[in-house]
């Protein structure tokens, strides 16, 4: 442990004196501690991790980068997993955490053992860890800002996510802030679509008869296609629906675009954010200066990039982007 500390100090000193020479990370081992793998987003996340870290191991950037997923999404199980990783002697641990607070004890132990801890998506609040957070608030606001560039104003329908989850509150708060700054828009109805197409379709169909003409629908991802179906079934004109990068949403958008030049945008979080966390960990081991808190850029699909994104996405999947070391460096210097 002491020798590791000394190496760390040495590396830091080296970088301070000569910024061109960097510590070698080819003997470093980075582990992924993941709390859950039960949906398509997490599966895509693990696949991206395997792909990017596999290449990094093959070309000798790092020695090893295995992924470990706990079986039951339990805090105590993940804490024990992290402790075992400390004993295994990994140089860095990348975490998608089951709880923002309850893993702090184990995370602190890892830091004390000289291990770099990078959390992403499900972040941890322990100060010694690095956090790659998603700015859901900004994601909601971006939607309204986009609408302001397209429409002169009008009535909006808001589709929210799963009630009681903080992500839902954050995105919705961002949308409402955007509306407050663009008073030409007014939210006339709000339903919970639970980030699922079928739930969103039912909820929108239920509220539509009570609403005036809707000029746009603001969403949280996973609900845009269902909303479009509900409008079509009710025989109402299709408004501008903001999409959420799901395959079925992009496919519908493409069909509309080809048929009548339909224009919108799509925004969500790429599951490849795990690979960003990997490179951030690698950069820290490399002795680079990285801020403790980083914000992930969300993945926006525009009218021009729709075809490429659609082609690159598996049916039933989510549009993804995997980060390279250069991308990660751009995020770090930009953040």
């Amino acid at each position: 442990m002491l020798s590791k500390l000394l190496i760390g100090v040495g590396a830091a000193a080296l970088c301070a004196t000569a910024t061109i020479s960097l510590a070698d990370t080819s003997d470093k081992r980075i582990a992924l501690s993941n709390n859950y793998a039960g949906n398509s987003w997490r599966q895509a996340m693990l696949a991206s991790w395997e792909k990017v870290t596999g290449a990094a191991v093959a070309d000798g950037t790092v020695a090893e980068a295995p992924a470990f997923t706990t079986a039951e999404n339990q805090v105590t199980e993940q804490a024990a997993q992290i402790q075992n990783m400390i004993l295994e002697g990994y140089d860095a641990i990348v975490i998608n955490a089951a709880s923002p607070d309850a893993l702090n004890g184990a995370v602190k132990q890892a830091c004390d053992a000289g291990i770099v801890v990078v959390s992403f998506d499900g972040i941890v609040t322990e100060p010694c860890a690095y956090r790659i957070a998603v700015d859901f608030h900004a994601m909601g606001k971006v939607e309204v800002e986009y609408l302001a560039t397209r429409l002169d104003g009008g009535d909006l329908l808001e589709i929210r996510g799963l009630a009681g989850v903080f992500v839902d509150d954050e995105i919705s708060a961002g949308i409402h802030e955007g509306v407050a700054e663009n008073p030409q828009f007014k939210i006339v109805g709000s339903v919970h679509g639970d980030w699922a197409q079928d739930v969103a379709q039912k909820a929108v169909a239920g509220i539509l008869p009570s609403l005036p003409e809707i000029s746009a629908v603001v969403t949280q991802g996973g609900d845009g296609y269902g909303a479009a179906q509900a409008f079509a079934a009710a025989g109402r004109p299709t408004p501008l629906i903001v999409m959420g990068n799901r395959y079925d949403e992009m496919l519908w958008w493409k069909e509309q675009k080809d048929a009548n030049g339909y224009e919108t945008m799509s925004v969500s979080i790429a599951p490849g954010v795990g690979t960003l966390a990997f490179w951030v960990a690698q950069m820290i081991l490399d002795g680079k200066e990285v801020p403790q808190d980083l914000t992930v850029p969300f993945l926006t699909i525009t009218q021009d990039t729709l075809e490429d994104s659609l082609a690159a996405t598996q049916p039933g999947g989510v549009a993804n982007v995997e980060y390279s070391l250069e991308d990660a460096m751009a995020v770090v210097s930009g953040g």
Binding site: E72, Q74, V75, T76, E77, A79, S99, D101, A102, L103, N104, G105, A106, K108
Partner: peptide, 15 residues
């Protein structure tokens, strides 16, 4: 348990 984790969660000890 909370002495170790420093924070709690209703599901912290389900297992």
């Amino acid at each position: 348990l909370i002495g170790l984790t420093s924070a709690a969660d209703a599901h912290i000890a389900d297992r």
